[in-house]
């Protein structure tokens, strides 16, 4: 569905050339749900803007939905849907009118466009807002309108740029419900950007971590987490002597053990299954643990392991 080779985009800022996207090779199969994850300014949006023909690449090439973004941008446009970061419906226009315009823009006749507009309004539970202007809708409702816009022409590939940013948790959950349901029903390929770690973790089947315009990790959230950080068990004992024994036992379970005073930390997968057995073995060796804890990594830990920076701190900054 998507195939990029060395895709690069430079921007000129104050006389300097800044690479926003620096040579990305990405292959996405039909039907995948891929999240592009990275801090603000990582190049996610620039990448998306190139793939959707809004921005020509400085170098490199890409095929999207079977068409080359350089030589056949209108072919790409006819085949993809795009939900941008900002709201798609014009402030002056009624929601349904905008949906009809959208259908017309993709070559539908007036009657077909009207019929299709009502269909997508229904799919996104927007029927009662058909005659309203976007300004009178809530943030979550507006976002649903944006998604409806992207679906009018039944694209096989839908790009979503920060689909849930700026929404309250309830609306975010609701938007996701819609996105996932539509994907099940329509079998679309979805490519989205997000900086919500939990979303990428829970929703995406494949996470592509982007930093400084490059792909620094690519895989399922599970795989990234287990390969790059892994689960950990942390046990404290009452004395340092006990800790030394606990370390010896731990080394039978794991190749990575650290001891700090009375605290023993070992990397094992899956930690929740290993913990009871480890505690029993400790007991048998005559050591009883004072406390035990399991930590499972988040995608933030993955990002930290890859870059030495925390994604959360980057966003707070």
């Amino acid at each position: 569905m998507i195939d990029t080779r060395g895709l690069t985009r430079h921007f000129r800022m104050g006389g300097q050339t800044v690479p926003a996207v620096a040579g990305i090779d990405l292959h996405i199969e039909p039907g995948e749900l891929v999240a592009l994850l990275g801090p603000n300014g990582a190049g996610k949006t620039t990448l998306l803007r190139m793939l959707t023909t809004l921005l020509p690449p400085t170098s490199g090439s890409a095929t999207v939905a079977g068409c080359d973004i350089r030589t056949d941008p209108s072919g790409v446009r006819a085949r993809i849907g795009y939900v941008g970061q900002r709201n798609s419906a014009g402030e002056n226009f009624r929601v349904r009118d905008e949906l009809v315009t959208q259908g017309r823009a993709y070559g539908m006749g007036v009657a077909a466009a009207r019929e299709r507009a009502d269909e997508v309004l229904g799919q996104l539970e927007l029927d009662q807002f058909a005659l309203r202007k976007p300004g009178t809708l809530s943030g979550g409702q507006r976002r649903r309108v944006d998604i409806a816009m992207g679906l009018v022409h039944r694209p096989a590939l839908l790009f979503l740029d920060e689909p849930s940013t700026g929404l309250d948790p309830q609306s975010r959950a609701n938007i996701w419900e819609h996105i996932l349901r539509l994907r099940r029903e329509l079998g679309m390929t979805l490519v989205l950007t997000t900086h919500y770690l939990e979303e990428a973790d829970r929703m995406a089947e494949r996470v592509v971590v982007v930093d400084h315009g490059r792909v620094i990790a690519d895989g399922t959230a599970e795989r990234l987490k287990s390969e790059l950080t892994g689960d950990h068990i942390t046990v404290t004992t009452s004395t340092e002597a006990d800790a030394a024994v606990a370390r010896g036992v731990a080394e039978r379970f794991s190749g990575e053990v650290e001891v700090d005073g009375t605290t023993v930390r070992l990397r094992v997968s899956p930690a929740t299954r290993v913990l009871p057995e480890y505690l029993r073995t400790l007991e048998a060796a005559g050591v009883s643990a004072v406390s035990a804890d399991v930590s499972q990594p988040t995608l933030d830990d993955v990002f930290l392991a890859l870059t030495g920076r925390s994604l959360r701190d980057e966003q707070a900054a």
Partner: peptide, 10 residues
């Protein structure tokens, strides 16, 4: 975003 949305259409 409405202009951008139209620029992505054919």
């Amino acid at each position: 975003g409405s202009m951008e949305r139209m620029l992505v259409t054919p």
